[in-house]
Amino acid sequence: MSARPLYLGLDLGSAWSKAVLLGPDGQVLARAARRTGMRFEDAAGALRDDVLDRAGATAADLASVVSTGYGRRNVPFADARRTEISCHARGAHHHFPRELDLVDIGGQDNKIVHVRRDGAVANFLMNRKCAAGTGAFVEEIAHRLDVPLEELEPLAEAATREITLSSFCTVFSATEVIKLIREGESPGNLCRGIFNSVIARVVEMGPLGGFIVMSGGVVAAFPVVARILAEKTGAEVAVAPHPQHLGAFGAALVAREGG
């Protein structure tokens, strides 16, 4: 073990990869994120170098590395791997040590993880095969509307009417949007409709309890989805600190606990 044991969590997602580096006492020393690109190995290596750089450390300081996410098997230098379900649960439990439902909305999939008070995963659900209600869905519809991503949320805030796209399918949803545009629906209402749909797809996945923690890139970019989820469920909804990095943070915690 190195003199300065550091712990690295790597979350290799389908669209984005994230890293969190923890110090000997579990404090966060650095975070990084990048597009995953074509090769998980390359993304993992670049992220490791990036966080080590930021922390002024070297690979020799790494006591343990845990990988998670779709690319978790493609990190040659990882000491252990865990699924993103376990890592998100670990991260959420660290921030909120109480019974909770984690709702993670990622680039290509959504998950709900029911975490017990003691941090154990009671059960989990993942969306099926398609990208409806995920980050990819938001990007696709924004693209169809020709609205830059950063303008989606302010537009949605100005909505005057609640609409929800009803189709399960991203492509059909896009067709629905075109129909609504033709009918003269305002851009604000349409943008709000995108977020309503994201939450509708989440809520229909399975039952949610009274306390929900949100994570993932979509809530990081569009905090409005947390408000919509609270309205739709009546639950208390918190957003995890650094929501996009929750999986990597959980992986780093697992690394620190001995993988």
Binding site: E84, I85, M126
Partner: peptide, 10 residues
């Protein structure tokens, strides 16, 4: 596979 592996972890 992720579903099965996560399940088995639990």
């Amino acid at each position: 596979k992720t579903s099965i592996e996560a399940f088995i972890e639990q």
